[in-house]
Design a protein around this nucleic acid. Structure first.
Length: 806
RNA sequence: GCGAAUGUGGCGGAACUGGUAGACGCACUGGAUUUAGGUUCCAGCGGUUCACACCGUGCGGGUUCGAGUCCCGCCAUUCGCACCA
């Protein structure tokens, strides 16, 4: 049979689908161990790109390999199908987001199916469907009951001209990216998940995960745990100010307090201090980028003074642009001698810089000086002593950079937040039996303007669950990160009409054994999903602590060194490649061309031509082979070349198995297969037991090819007389006795330089090796006239190093 | 600035516990087959050199019988964070 992927691949795909070969359920798990392979929930943009192809191929190689090794493999796919692009498309084309989304999903699904990925499509989910998002709402209500949801004010990007809120990516240089209308910060009351309650556990849990170190480092940094103390200063004529500091030991070095411009005390002062008011207004007007770019510390001296708790000295209070309201207490004690930022600030405003720590590095802890009774103590000791002495005015405290998760979006295309606003009872959750709160259909997409939800009469009218009176339905929708924070659990029980999922359905499969996706989700998605999982655990809905045991982050697919993008015009469409070369060649290239975690450069079609060449060569070799049912002859009857080939075969089985199961180094799986084919091609045509030896080798080869190039592997397996699907056949086992060669090549070095090679029987002793090495003809000239100091014989038996001196 | 990672032929990369550096592939060169192109097959392919030999894994040092691999100090690139008190 010729190699003709374009016609054969779809036929094989149909056979798999008709046979239900990708289906899995807890019931038919039986004695098999579970293996859950997951790829990150894709956004249905309508077209797959090479990044998807790489991602899905990597997952499928793992899934198909584990299936052949006898695992019960769970590999689902679904759609992250809420979000802004659908609304933008609706504005542009006048198509309802649901129609656009449904069509995109259908298109992308067809493309993915042409790749031959072994997804169990019966588990497909889509977050835009009420059957899915009702459970977002249900989970929100459970979290509301537990106090995991709260409402608070937060700044949003507000465009007055359009009367709407914009996402960060819609704001460029302080203006709406389309219309150019100015955008300002406006405070709105919004919903938050109290993720900081779990900050400590989210940090500690990282240690147990088999994740890339850089991702763990990014999460640790994001959580940003910082240990120190909170300390209250008295303020003349006002309430106390609380500061957070990690260096309470420097307290005698305080020469000013710096407060955020948004700090309540500063805000209160703006009424009577016009200059301060102007300063705060100017700082507020600066965009985030401007503040970062400027990189200059600015402050404004208020008329207020704090009192030093030990010395009673008066300390000036400043409003300063470098103090953030949403970290710590929004106020810092300025210690110019021992903090770089405070130092810069003090120099600018002519403040004193008293030195109170003796240390090699002024910014680091050391021994206290000029600090009253604490002088002479080490920093750590002094901190503890000061807390005691301050008698309740200071307490040890921990602060996190992690912020509570604001989930409100002022958008249409998302999960409606299931609450109502009652004039008498405030914000109330709707009752569970009212779910789902559906998105209304009677809406128009006019372009910019308020969310269509705010104009839908049918949607807005609701009843208060307390008094039954008229209430206004909440028009905020949920961040789409909510959808992707628990979807991997819904896959395990996708049709459940009573719960998001049944504990009994998810426990056998969780945690996910292998999660593959891009590094861009290192913080947000991967922290939110971990948080949700811990909440679900505390709700008694799952048993394990962490959702994703092993994580692999694939590198990007580039073209000529650049990220593929429409604007650069360097996009290679996977469909074009599929149409010319077929799925197997594309999959093979994706696996072979670079290590998983590195960038993969699509250098042109040369690479995939090479993959095709290899597959054709493989197909030809099987065509030229005559199927043979004889058992493999005993080892002592085989020729030297036959034994060499079988030796190579079993070494390769061992290596490929390790690379797939343990090392997750997939590119060398392909090079191993290539080496094996090269070795088979070298077997002489007149080799005495050629047919049974080749049968044995080709059979194992077809099985090992199957995860990477599953279509051709099916065809070859059938040609070789295999029964059923190769994808359901057993993975070959490396036979340890065949991994031992009869003869060993021993490298002979003189003073560490390779000078010769000798071949010895496998059972050669150290003495044999030493003698053979010293007798080796190529080595003799390097020994003549020299004194042999010693002969090193490493235990691996593959090398001899003769150390000589003149 | 802080943190992390990575530096190996023309290119992508391999070398698993310190033990033959450059597996495998791409590109390239020569040859065979072919009317020709393509395909396929054979051979070559780190540098200097006729050769012997020497040099060679970012640079400089160290440990070792032996270093791409371990240690110290630089340099470069990439990524992440970036006033986090």
């Amino acid at each position: 049979m010729t190699f003709n992927p374009l016609t054969q691949e779809s036929a094989i795909q149909s056979k798999w689908l008709n046979d239900g070969a990708f289906h899995i359920s807890t019931r038919d798990m039986g004695q098999r161990q579970p293996y859950y392979v997951l790829v990150m929930l894709p956004y249905p943009s309508g077209r797959i790109h090479m990044g998807h192809v790489r991602n899905y191929t990597l997952g499928d190689v793992a899934a198909r390999f584990q299936r052949m090794r006898g695992k019960a493999v769970m590999q689902p796919l679904g759609w992250d199908s809420f979000g802004l692009p659908a609304e933008n498309a609706a504005i542009k084309n006048g198509t309802h987001p649901a129609i656009w989304t449904r069509q995109n999903i259908a298109d992308m699904k067809a493309q993915i199916q042409r790749l031959g990925i072994s997804y169990d499509w019966d588990r497909e989910i889509a977050s835009y469907l009420p059957e899915y998002y009702r459970w977002n709402q249900w989970l929100f209500l459970q979290m509301w009951k537990r106090g995991d949801v709260f409402r608070a004010m937060r700044n949003v990007n507000w465009c007055e001209a359009l009367g709407t809120v914009l996402a960060n990516e819609q704001v460029v240089d302080g203006r709406d990216e389309r219309t150019g209308h100015p955008v300002v910060q406006k405070s709105l009351e919004q919903y938050f998940f109290a993720i900081t309650k779990y900050a400590d556990e989210l940090l500690a849990g990282l240690d147990k995960l088999d994740w890339p170190d850089n991702v763990k480092a990014m999460q640790r940094h994001w959580i940003g745990k910082s240990e120190g103390a909170r300390l209250r200063f008295d303020v003349e004529g006002h309430d106390q100010i609380e500061v957070f500091t990690t260096r309470l030991d420097t307290l005698y070095g305080v020469s000013f307090l710096a407060l955020s411009t948004e700090h309540p005390l500063i805000q209160a002062q703006t009424d009577e201090d016009a200059d301060l008011r102007a300063f705060c207004a100017r700082i507020k007007a600066q965009s985030r980028e401007e503040r970062l770019m400027a990189d200059i510390k600015e402050g404004h001296r208020t008329k207020l003074h704090a009192v030093h708790p030990f010395t009673g000295e008066l300390i000036p209070i400043f409003a300063a642009n470098y103090v953030l309201m949403d970290y710590g207490t929004g106020a810092v004690m300025g210690v110019p001698a021992h903090d770089e930022r405070d130092h810069e600030f003090a120099l600018k405003y002519g403040l004193s810089i008293p030195k109170v720590i003796e240390s090699d590095d002024p910014w680091q802890p050391g021994i206290l000086i000029n600090s009253g009774e604490f002088s002479g103590m080490a920093s750590a000791e002094a901190t503890a002593a000061m807390i005691t002495k301050l008698a309740g005015r200071a307490v040890g405290a921990v602060t996190f950079k992690l912020k509570d998760w604001g989930l409100s979006r002022q958008r249409y295309w998302g999960t409606p937040i299931p609450t109502v606003h009652c004039p008498d009872h405030g914000v109330q959750p709707v009752s569970e039996d009212e779910l789902p709160v559906r998105l209304p259909e009677d809406v128009e997409f006019t372009g910019h303007g308020p969310s269509p939800l705010t104009t839908s009469k049918s949607f807005l009218e609701a009843k208060c669950p307390i008094c039954g009176g008229a209430a206004r339905r909440e028009t905020d929708t949920m961040d789409t990160f909510v959808d992707s924070s628990w979807y991997f659990l819904r896959y395990l029980d996708p049709k459940n009409e009573h719960l998001p999922f049944d504990k009994a359905a998810v426990d056998p499969w969780m945690p996910v054994d292998l999660y593959i996706g891009g590094i861009e989700h290192a913080t947000m998605h991967l922290i939110y999903a971990r948080y949700f999982h811990k909440v679900l655990r505390d709700l008694g809905m799952v048993s394990c602590d962490e959702p994703f045991q092993k994580l692999i982050c694939q590198g990007m697919v580039l073209k000529d060194g650049f990220k593929m993008s429409k604007s650069k015009g360097n996009v290679v469409d996977p469909d074009d490649v599929l149409a010319r070369y077929g799925a197997d060649a594309l999959r093979l290239f994706m696996i072979f061309a670079a290590p998983i975690e590195k960038e993969l450069d699509w250098t042109g079609f040369d690479g995939i031509e090479g993959s095709t060449r290899f597959l054709k060569r493989v197909a030809r070799m099987v065509d030229e082979h005559t199927v043979n049912a004889e058992p493999l002859p005993a080892r002592d009857q085989l020729s030297r070349e036959e034994k060499d080939l079988l030796h190579k075969l079993h070494l390769t089985i061992h290596r490929i198995t390790e690379d797939l199961a343990v090392r997750f180094q997939f590119n060398t799986v392909v090079s191993g297969l290539m080496e094996l084919i090269n070795a088979m091609a070298d077997l002489p045509a007149d080799s005495p037991h050629r047919a049974p030896v080749m049968q044995h080798a080709l059979d194992a080869f077809a099985r090992m090819l199957s995860p990477v190039a599953p279509h051709l592997a099916e065809q070859l397996f059938e040609q070789l007389g295999g029964r059923g699907f190769v994808m359901q056949a057993a993975w070959p086992e490396a036979n340890p006795s065949w991994m031992q060669a009869d003869e060993i090549l021993v490298v002979v070095q003189v003073n560490g330089k390779v000078r010769g090679r000798v071949t010895l029987p496998a059972g050669a002793t150290e003495t044999d090796r030493r003698e053979a090495a010293l007798a080796c003809a190529e080595v003799r000239p390097h020994l003549d006239g020299k004194e042999i100091v010693k002969v090193v014989l490493p235990p691996n038996g593959k090398l001899v190093n003769i150390v000589v001196k003149n």
